[in-house]
């Protein structure tokens, strides 16, 4: 038995083990994207990089925000800010299931004692114009990960296909660490000179953001920001591919995509404020999807997205 198969002692140790494991399997360990997103999938390292033919292998932690899930830090499982661990490998390797099971072992889940199951779950993201097939992975009846083979992103067929793994870190860690309330979970090693719980780190921010998300966020300002982000995204994408200043071909897929991410998050905030009716909801989702689709269209016009000089513009 190596050190890796012993039980981890803290939330951060689980993250560190996942980082070490996926690094050892050849993934580039990226850092979180520096914007507010609803899920790890929104990181351009997943959405944009799943497009085009270039091989890709990345893993990262992504702080994710879902304003409507805020419960002032009182609910044992629900948070408006939480972490996802995300792995994306393109093309999906034939042994991806085995690699994934190895990662569970790395964080102390012994497959000889637990019941691990792949249960059908089709994934779809209306705002990303994306879908894929795969499973939710169950460990003793609990969903510990999402496992998806991307078929389409931003309206483009994925070819080759990326394999995407998403771990809900708090839930997974609570299970591994046998904690009932997320705020009680040890964040660092409980034997540390200054032991910190998840609550020590996040209880206060959960309260603050829940109040702001639900009751204070200025909806007029948010509505305006949404419009501005949408307009800016379109403006960026409307620019000619060849930069007049440098004379280089520079398609600005990423700056445009940032605006799409921004619009998506603002929509989530507006939703939490309860100012979006059922019919408007669909319209907003459609507007965000139109942006991400346009960004995907732009990305495949870049080198990273598979564009080569001489190819049709």
């Amino acid at each position: 038995m190596t050190e890796m198969t012993t039980a981890p002692r803290s939330f951060q140790e689980i993250i560190l083990r996942l980082q070490t494991y996926w690094a050892s399997k050849g993934c580039a360990i990226l850092q979180p994207y520096d914007m507010e997103v609803g899920a790890g999938t929104f990181h351009p390292a997943t959405t944009l990089r799943s497009l085009g033919a270039q091989p890709w292998a990345a893993a990262y932690v992504q702080p994710s925000r879902r304003p409507t899930d805020g419960r002032y830090g009182e609910n044992p499982n629900r948070l408006q800010h939480y972490y996802q661990y995300q792995v994306l490998i393109k093309p999906s390797p034939p042994d991806l299931q085995a690699l994934y099971l190895g990662s569970l072992e790395a964080i102390g889940i012994d497959a000889d004692l637990h019941d691990i199951r792949f249960v059908e779950d089709d994934w779809e993201s209306p705002t990303l114009g994306a879908w894929g097939l795969g499973w939710e992975v169950w460990c003793d009846g609990m969903e510990v990960s999402q496992f998806t083979y991307f078929q389409q992103v931003g309206g483009h067929d994925c070819s080759p296909v990326s394999g995407e793994l998403t771990y809900g870190l708090e839930r997974l860690a609570m299970y591994v660490l046998a904690v009932d309330h997320v705020m009680d979970m040890p964040f660092n090693d409980p034997q540390s000179p200054i032991p910190l719980s998840y609550g020590d780190v996040f209880k206060q921010t959960e309260e603050e953001y829940a109040r702001w998300n639900f009751d204070v966020a200025n909806t007029d300002v948010l509505l305006r920001h949404f419009e501005e982000a949408e307009a800016e995204c379109k403006t960026i994408l409307d620019q000619v591919h060849d930069d007049p200043k440098t004379g280089k071909r520079i398609v600005m897929a990423h700056p445009a995509y940032d605006q799409a991410i921004k619009a998506s998050h603002i929509f989530n905030l507006l939703d939490a404020r309860g100012v979006i009716s059922v019919t408007e909801r669909q319209a907003y989702i459609g507007r965000v999807r139109a942006l991400t689709k346009a960004c995907a269209d732009a990305f495949v016009q870049t080198r990273a997205g598979g564009w080569t000089p001489g190819a049709a513009a």
Binding site: P91, S92, P93, P94, D122, G132, L133, G134, Y149, Q151, C158, S159, P160, V161, G163
Partner: peptide, 18 residues
Amino acid sequence: PKSMRWGSGTLKWVRPLH
């Protein structure tokens, strides 16, 4: 009822065929 591609292949199956 629903099938998919995987890796670099073009074959469609319900989940990767090994």
